[in-house]
Design a protein around this nucleic acid. Structure first.
Length: 569
RNA sequence: CGGGGCGUAGCGCAGUCCGGCAGCGCAUCUGGUUUGGGACCAGAGGGUCGGAGGUUCAAAUCCUCUCGCCCCGACCA
């Protein structure tokens, strides 16, 4: 491809709207342009990359027996009402009436369509198992699209669905996907890891996420530095280091004027936060309860949801005062009768905690849960933090930001049951199909790759994803010798099936070098008059910056060598 | 949805406080020179100052409304 004919509008300056590295580089290198918030056009360079990613996905999905389908992105809303997800998604799902006033929507995912097909056309267990997948545009009216291609309102997703009639079958399909996903992300050259995850809105038994460590990630993940333990912070567990030597052995009232937060009281008493008990009043199913947790931990909203479903809410300051006769910051379950207390495991088997005295401007030291107030139940509600101990091996955990690339779910029968997607089993009994659901964000692979593989000059593609393998840079293409040799090299490489981008533009050498570094093809072949006269070309490796000089006749051979050497890296 | 910021030429910005000729750099076009890290000379084109309404002799600038984009939070397979 000649650059003079190729559409890759590069930018010298960083567009002011782009904040994260991948977004800035994709705009500067002319990969994408924004049409509206969270809606992007993929220009020739990025579409070449995305097609390569999709090819890898197809190969690996086909390898586990997946059958590619293409389902409608435009759906009638009523199938979404059948499963109740029209309401669950709410405004996050684009919906609108068609000309006959039937409500339609743009599908944010495709379980409902899969079930609609299965219930009509699959009757018997003999027709199972099935693995169906597609690569499709998904639409989600995100409250806040952001971070370039990492969170958009229209995006490409590989989504697959497995249909089984036994739970063992589901396990097998799930494991196949885990294997395929490792291959896909590995082949793309991503440093990824797998974590146990929450199923969230999707429901279902077990789920696993494939994550990319990145400051830009919206998820928090706990990683063990020693063993393979990795879990989304939403569900991560940890081993507790108990506190023992509290200076408060017995119940002691402490004057703490105007000191409300754990931080303030901790500083005031010069006592670190693990000696505190954080007391919070919630309403669960309209009844007041105390939730208490050790002072150095936060409550994990997702664990709250799992424990109490969505029926909980924090008490208002007025309700707190009414029940405790003290203001927020000075309360605790000590001495408050008739209100159940859920105690987080971080407080278990320890004593001597400081919490509110239920009297403004006073705290109490020396609290022992179970002795100084009744424990309704010990529960796991704490949010893991960096430095906590691995639940598997006891080594310390790192909590890092991560980008979710893929997610696999054992869905079970949630959707098949509500939509009546049933089959007859061996005994002639009607049972709901057991489903799995598995997604990969295609653009996130590209954006995530760039987040991990770029330097101050631009993108650094590997051969697997690069839009072109070789960027040919003639210095002064108008020069006859340069032009003839360049054209010969271009013809030869292209003839060998090596994708080449030829910068035949009449611009200064520096301009070409900067653009080439920005676009980031793995190898640059620089052809200048001086070297050509000696029968030589220069090869520059984008990743290392290393340069080598190669005899012209051996150029293509050397490039093939380099490609082979770097396969799978 | 709450908080903050921004909107002026393709891109990056100044001008807005304090009303008075719409500017700068880069990019673009024409001609010429140049060719190993974003070249030089000469000339040229390009604007509904996001939009609507208002105040004023006069509005990019002041007022009201509105649309869009970004960031933080809430939210989020």
């Amino acid at each position: 491809m000649k650059m003079s004919e190729f559409f890759s509008p590069t930018l010298k300056e960083i567009p002011s709207d782009a904040v994260i590295k991948s977004h800035q580089l994709m705009l500067r290198a002319g990969l994408v342009r924004m049409l509206a918030a969270g809606i992007y056009s993929y220009l020739p360079l990025s579409w070449r990359v995305l097609k390569k990613i999709m090819n890898i996905v197809r190969e690996e999905m086909d390898a586990i027996g997946g059958q590619e389908v293409f389902l409608p992105a435009l759906n009638p809303l009523d199938i979404w009402q059948e499963t109740g997800r029209a309401e669950n998604f709410g405004d996050e799902m684009f919906h609108f009436p068609d000309r006959k006033n039937r409500m339609m929507c743009l599908a944010p995912t495709h379980e409902e369509v899969i079930c609609a097909i299965a219930r009509n056309d699959i009757r018997s267990y003999k027709e199972l198992p099935q693995i169906w997948y597609q690569i499709q545009n998904k639409f989600r009216d995100e409250p806040r699209p952001r971070s370039g291609l990492l969170r958009t309102r229209q995006f490409l997703m590989k989504d697959s669905y497995t249909l089984d009639y036994t739970w063992e079958g589901l396990d097998i399909a799930y494991d196949k996907h885990a294997r395929a996903y490792r291959n896909i992300f590995g082949r793309c050259g991503l440093k990824f890891f797998e974590v146990g995850a929450s199923s969230g809105l999707m429901g279902g038994a077990s789920s696993q996420e494939f994550m990319l460590e990145s400051e830009m990630g919206e998820d928090n993940v706990a990683l063990c530095g020693q063993c393979s333990y990795a879990a989304n912070a939403e569900i991560a567990g940890f081993r507790l280091e108990p506190v023992e030597d509290s200076p408060y052995r017995e119940l002691t009232e402490i004057s703490t004027p105007e000191k409300r937060t754990i931080d303030e009281v901790s500083t005031f008493l010069n006592l670190s936060s693990e000696y505190f008990m954080k007391s919070m009043l919630y309403f669960i199913d309209s009844k007041p309860v105390f939730i208490v947790i050790r002072g150095d931990y936060e409550v994990n909203e997702m664990k709250m949801l799992t424990k109490f479903s969505d029926l909980f809410r924090p008490a208002t300051p007025e309700e707190v005062f009414e029940i405790c006769n003290a203001h927020v910051g000075f309360i605790s379950p000590v001495g408050i009768k008739g209100i159940p207390v859920y105690v987080d495991n971080t407080l278990k088997d320890q004593t001597g905690f400081v919490s509110g005295a239920n009297k403004d401007h006073f705290h109490i030291g020396g609290i022992a849960p179970g002795k100084d107030f009744p424990v309704k139940e010990y529960v796991d509600l704490a949010l893991v933090k960096s430095g906590d101990l691995c639940p598997e091996c006891g080594h310390s955990l790192r909590v890092v930001h991560a980008i979710e690339l893929g997610h696999i779910f054992k869905l079970g029968t949630k959707y098949s049951a509500s939509m009546g997607a049933n089959v007859l089993d061996q005994n002639g009994k009607e049972i709901p199909i057991i489903m799995g659901s598995y997604g990969i964000g295609i653009e996130r692979i590209m954006a995530g790759y760039i987040e991990q593989n770029a330097d101050e000059n631009g993108i650094v593609w590997n051969f697997t994803l690069a839009p072109f393998a070789v960027h040919i840079l003639p210095i002064n293409y108008k020069n006859r010798l340069v032009r003839e040799k360049t054209d010969a090299v271009y013809q030869e490489l292209s003839g060998l099936g090596i994708e080449c981008l030829l910068d035949d533009r009449n611009v200064s050498p520096g301009f070409k070098f900067r653009d080439a570094d920005l676009l980031g093809m793995p190898v640059q072949s620089i052809l200048g008059e001086k070297n050509l006269k000696n029968g030589q070309a220069e090869l520059k490796h984008r990743k290392t910056g290393n340069k080598e000089f190669v005899e012209l006749e051996k150029l293509s051979q050397r490039i093939i060598e380099i490609i082979m050497e770097n396969k799978g890296k």
